[in-house]
Amino acid sequence: MISIMFNKYFIKYTLVLIAICFNVNVFAQSAIQIQNSKLKKDRSIVDFINNNVSLFGALDLSKQSINDNGITVPINYLYNSVNNNVFKPGYSGGFRIDGICKNEHHYMLSFAINRLATGSYYEHKYSLSPYTDDFTHFKADNVFTTLSIAAHYKLLLPINEMKKYKFYAVAGPSVDYKISNISNENLLNGAGNRTIINGDLGAEFDNKGYYVLFAHYKIGTNLNQSSVPVQLNRIEIGMSIKAKDLF
């Protein structure tokens, strides 16, 4: 009889104990999860520090290389009148956010509007005998406006006294989107392409946080496939000043 009673209570209490343990475990797990997510949230905020918004202006020297092999429409432009293998000046302005990630990685995000005037180098010449003049099948727009975004990693260089003057090597991607009208001549055979993706390399000099002088070299190409692949080379030289110092 006792053994039966013992077994009955034993089973009952064992079940209750298991249930309590399970619940405690669940509560503990959810508490840990909440704590972890809080920590993660705090950590993610701590990851990005010292964010400074700056305004910048820059001189843009640009040149584009054009491969018009894919054009089948029988149009000609005299080569010497359209080919201009030089860097031409334009300008850009915008704002950038400089910060530090995880206390050691310097980064920069920028948003800019660019007015570019580019020299144009045409890779191919064609001729139609008995005409002696060379020509191309395509004339690229050489003045256009873009919106651009860039994300750069900044490597602090051990030059000079780093607390006062800071020198950075800069690298990262950027994307340009043409917002100006594309001429009909640039839309032949699906040559029109508004988006350019760039790889950027450069150097920056931070003068005690008062201002930053920068020089970036950007090499870009069409993001989408185009019958006229264009390679856009750009040198961007400019200065940025913290927004809070200006306003």
Binding site: V73, I75, L147, I149, V175, Y177, I182, N184, E185, L187, L188, G190, G192, N193, R194, T195, L223, N224, Q225, S226
Partner: peptide, 19 residues
């Protein structure tokens, strides 16, 4: 979003007009 939305290509049907 801007960079994703902007990934389009324009095609002209105006070859005759250009000529």
């Amino acid at each position: 979003l801007i960079s994703t939305v902007s990934c389009n290509k324009e095609v002209s049907s105006t070859s005759s007009d250009v000529m």
